[in-house]
């Protein structure tokens, strides 16, 4: 009886798990690569690109390598942005590692946001999360993506849909192999991200000048290795720009001075001229347009001799 009970438990659990997985509601607004696979593949990049885009979610949602590359034909471009990513040492070390040492011209393009220079972003971010995933789990997810996806935990959106409620918002996302996530939210709320950032900055998580210095030291190091380094501040909504300028502790002029002194080139882009669906991230069409504009700026910069 006991032997049957234990075996029965595992059989019943397996059947339950298999059956329950079928109840996962479809989200046709999430497309492209499977999300887990998207991040794991990104973590596997090694010495294979000419140009690396780096930064937080404003980068990985806001810059399309395909559109950027229209002005840079033949250049292998990767979007190496991660969620909430701060420019801390582990991440900075990794950025250079995805560039091909045999490339004729290696370039690092940094999307610098005030949040990416804060202590919280340095400690806890999407890059560190993925880096801390043990190799065996990563191997399982990469080798058995179907089962891994089937058995992944239900998100809040899925649970809400499962219990009969409509999703609060449809978060459209298409995961591209280049590292870009084209995104859009329906309904939009251009003020959505403001409250979150306000609380965070007012709670004490503001720009750390020491992190600015660390980033500058890496710019110097990359320049010494012959890598061109370009930086810019990703576009956001006007209200977000005003909020960050007011309370994030980011002194843009001071930072640009450090960046240029270290050997980087700073691009002065239109910071509020592209449409954001939540105040922080660009919706897909705006991201493509921004990427084309950025690509043209980068191409023009690269025609000039390096400092």
């Amino acid at each position: 009886m006991m032997r049957e009970r234990l075996t029965a438990l595992f059989l019943v659990s397996a059947l339950l798990a298999g059956a329950f997985g079928m109840t996962r509601p479809a989200q046709p607004w999430v497309q492209g690569m499977q999300e887990n696979l998207f991040w794991l593949k990104k973590m596997q990049w090694n010495s294979e690109f000419d140009l690396a885009l780096a930064g937080d979610s404003r980068m990985f949602r806001g810059v399309s390598p395909e559109d950027l590359g229209r002005s840079l034909p033949g250049v292998r471009i990767a979007n190496y942005g991660f969620s909430g990513c701060g420019f801390s040492r582990p991440y900075l070390d990794a950025i250079g590692g995805i560039l091909d040492p045999r490339s004729e011209q290696r370039v690092i393009v940094l999307g610098v946001t005030p949040h990416s220079l804060t202590p919280n972003a340095a400690r806890n971010n999407g890059y560190i999360d993925k880096k801390n995933l043990d190799p065996f789990s990563a191997w399982v997810y990469l080798t058995f993506p179907g089962i891994s996806t089937y058995l992944k935990p239900y998100s809040s959106v899925e649970m809400r849909m499962l219990t009969g409620g409509p999703p609060l918002a449809k978060y459209y996302a298409r995961y591209h192999a280049s590292g870009w996530v084209a995104s859009h939210k329906d309904p939009e709320d251009p003020r959505e991200a403001l409250e979150e950032y306000r609380r965070m900055f007012e709670g004490g998580n503001t720009v750390d000048p020491a992190q600015e210095d660390e980033l500058a030291s890496y710019v110097r190091k990359w320049r010494a290795q012959g890598i061109r380094v370009i930086g810019f501040r990703p576009p956001v909504s006007r209200e977000m720009l005003e909020l960050e300028t007011r309370i994030s502790g980011f002194d843009e002029a001071r930072f640009i001075n450090k960046f240029k002194t270290a050997g980087g080139v700073w691009l002065d882009i239109d910071q509020t001229g592209y449409h954001s669906y939540d105040g922080s991230h660009l919706e897909e069409k705006a991201a493509r347009r921004f990427s084309r504009d950025l690509g043209a700026d980068i191409a023009e910069t690269l025609t000039r001799p390096a400092n």
Binding site: R5, L9, V12, S13, L16, A17, F20, L151, P153
Partner: peptide, 17 residues
């Protein structure tokens, strides 16, 4: 107890944090 155990295993798969 048996049913609860099966449900807990199910939750560990699909509702883990």
């Amino acid at each position: 107890e048996f049913i609860l155990a099966a449900i807990m295993i199910l939750c560990c798969v699909y509702f883990r944090g």
